[in-house]
Structure formats: C-alpha cells, structure tokens
C-alpha cells in the first residue's frame, strides 16, 4: 500500500510538472490575454496546450485512483510538491531568477506541505490498522 502511494504520488508529480511547463509555453505563445475566440484559437493553435492536456489527463486518472483510499486534503497536499520541480525547471527553461521572496515563500509552502503530509501519516496510523488495506 505504501509503495502504491509513493509510485502514485511520483507519477502525479511528473504529470503535474509536464502540465505546468506546457501551460506556461502555451500561455506565452497566446498573448495577449483576452476573453475572446481569437485568444482560444491562439491557445489551441499551437502544440504546447496538448502537452498540458496530456499531463492533465494523466494526473486525473492517477488522482482518481489515489483518492479512492486517501483523504482529500492530505492527498492534495502531497500532490503539490510539484512546486519544487517546477521552480527548478523554470530557472533552466525560462531563465526565471530564484529571488529571495520566492525561496522564502517556497520554503514556507514546502514546510507547510510537509506538516500536512505528517498529519496524514498520523491519521493513517490511527485509521489503517488490521484489515484496512484492501489493495
């Protein structure tokens, strides 16, 4: 069961990272933003939006399989560790500087996510005693 969660969350993180990077490329190529058909045509007229779609769909099926057993809040939190992989990739792909507020903000957010993950494992120690794990 533990391995199932670990593999599931890593897969979710990979799909989420693919989506975020693709979203950024898709959005940048569709500027300027407008609530118009022209903007939608620009968004769907280049390949990156489909990378985002693949990441979304992959994350969706991974997520629905995980949610069957995991409580929503902590599972959602665990899935959000992608902020770290996306931040690191952004330096390389988009030349985004690692500013002090971003590092401080990311540290607080990751610390918060770790707390939520710990809260989850405590909850699991309480919940998942004999016979609870079906798969």
């Amino acid at each position: 069961m533990k391995r199932f969660y670990l593999f599931g969350f890593l897969l979710l993180m990979a799909f989420d990272t693919l989506s975020q990077v693709s979203f950024k490329y898709a959005g940048s190529q569709a500027l300027p933003v407008a609530a118009s058909m022209a903007w939608l045509a620009r968004v769907f007229g280049q390949p990156w939006v489909y990378g985002a779609l693949i990441g979304y769909i992959g994350a969706f099926f991974t997520w629905m399989s995980l949610l069957k057993h995991a409580p929503i809040g902590p599972a959602f939190a665990a899935s959000h560790l992608e902020v770290v992989s996306v931040m690191l990739l952004s330096i390389w792909l988009f030349d985004e500087p690692l500013t002090l507020p971003r590092v401080l903000g990311a540290s607080a957010i990751v610390a918060g996510i770790v707390c939520l993950g710990l809260a989850e494992s405590h909850q699991h120690d309480v919940d998942a005693q004999p016979g609870a794990a079906a798969s």
Binding site: Q20, V21, F23, K24, A26, G27, S28, A30, L31, V33, W39, V43, V49, A52, I72, G73, F76, A77, H80, E82, V83, V86, M87, S90, I91, F94, E96, L98, R102, G105, A106, I109, G112, I113, L116
Partner: peptide, 24 residues
Amino acid sequence: IAFLSLVPLSEGVLLGSINIVAIM
C-alpha cells in the same frame, strides 16, 4: 493558462498553492 501567461511560472505555481488551504 491565462494566469501563467502573465506571471513567471515559478511565482505562478507558488501563488497557486493557496488551493491547498482552500481545499482543506
């Protein structure tokens, strides 16, 4: 997509983390 096209990606995903709070 619209949001991320207006802010740097690293900042965007960090700002999006507020979803964790809202969902909990």
